[in-house]
Design a protein around this nucleic acid. Structure first.
Length: 301
DNA sequence: TTCCCGCCAG
DNA sequence: CTGGCCGGAA
């Protein structure tokens, strides 16, 4: 008997129980309500990039109330959008979402596309978000891979303690292979994989006794070995340009109109770093300089 | 102090 | 493929 060199070294476990688990254990998040549009899902997924659910919830509700359609947001100034983004962090996301809203309004009849490649062409929409919108807003059978899903698959399928460095194409193919043929079941599994990674199969203290797939989990069968790959990098915040940019922008969000240079100088003592950050904020389009040399949120004056 | 964890420019 | 981009909760 010959062996197939391309055969996977591990066989995919049956994850049917994860679909059932998700259907009865999914957290009741506002963007999961049945009447939420593709626009609502795009806004939620963009806000959820790098920002925890609890901080996103109130802002998302406000946005949906103020801007129920892409054209509503597109008609708003960048300054107002940045203020409404508040302290969700990484405000370039807000600018890109504003820009994407304009594209959807003018080129897609004010309806967020359901096709992955069309979604990928929108500003701020990458491999994860495009597929999340396709799967969660439109019920499509596409692999949705974030870091939680990578960890769940690394454990349940490959028996490792955690996923190694991202390898987008391989990761997508990996998860694609797990999806059932049926669209509704596939999107439920995609959502279930994420939910499991966020709430049960966590990095540091997985609650395996609560896990719906524990009896089929390769990591369990391996005796839950520790993560063996290269050390993960820890991201600093205190003292970084990110912190300084945040402080500078916060001054403008809190001001009525343009502010003098002196007010910005007050938030950080290192002049060199301050100037560098100010410059990068201008380059990023997160602030503008007025004719008289003051600073303002974009599109405000 | 540590953790969170997607997009994009270089 | 690597590193920079926010800010708050644990």
């Amino acid at each position: 008997m010959t062996t197939d060199a391309d055969a996977p070294t591990t066989s995919a476990p049956d994850l049917t129980e994860l679909i059932l688990w998700f259907r009865s254990n999914a957290r009741a998040l506002p963007w999961r309500e049945p009447d939420v549009t593709g626009w609502g899902v795009l806004v939620s997924e963009t806000m959820l990039q790098q920002t925890p659910v609890r901080r996103v919830e109130p802002i998302w509700l406000e946005w949906m109330s103020r801007w129920p359609a892409p054209s509503d947001l597109a008609a708003t100034s960048q300054a107002e959008v940045l203020r409404a983004w508040g302290k969700l962090g990484y405000p370039r996301r807000a600018l890109r979402l504003h820009e994407a809203a304009g594209v959807v309004a003018t080129e897609h009849d004010d309806v967020v596309p359901s096709d992955v490649d069309t979604l990928l062409a929108l500003p701020g929409v990458g491999a994860y978000t495009a597929r999340a919108v396709a799967a969660f807003a439109y019920g499509k059978r596409v692999p949705v891979v974030d870091t939680n899903v990578r960890r769940v698959v690394a454990r349940a399928v490959h028996g490792a303690g955690d996923a190694g460095p991202p390898a987008t194409n391989r990761d997508l193919a990996d998860v694609e292979a797990l999806l059932p043929a049926d669209e509704a079941r596939a999107s439920a599994l995609s959502a279930g994989l994420m939910e499991l990674g966020q709430t049960v199969c966590t990095v540091r203290s997985p609650e395996c006794e609560r896990c719906p797939v524990r009896r089929r989990c390769a990591w369990q069968h391996n005796g839950r070995p520790a993560y063996a790959g290269p050390a993960k990098k820890v991201q600093k915040f205190a003292g970084t340009d990110r912190q300084v940019r945040g402080k500078l922008l916060d001054v403008l969000r809190g001001a009525e109109g343009p502010v003098a240079r002196k007010q910005l100088d007050a938030v950080w003592s290192d002049a060199g770093q301050r100037d560098r950050c100010l410059d990068s904020l201008l380059v990023d389009g997160l602030m503008e300089q007025t004719d008289d040399g003051r600073f303002a949120l974009p599109g405000e004056h």
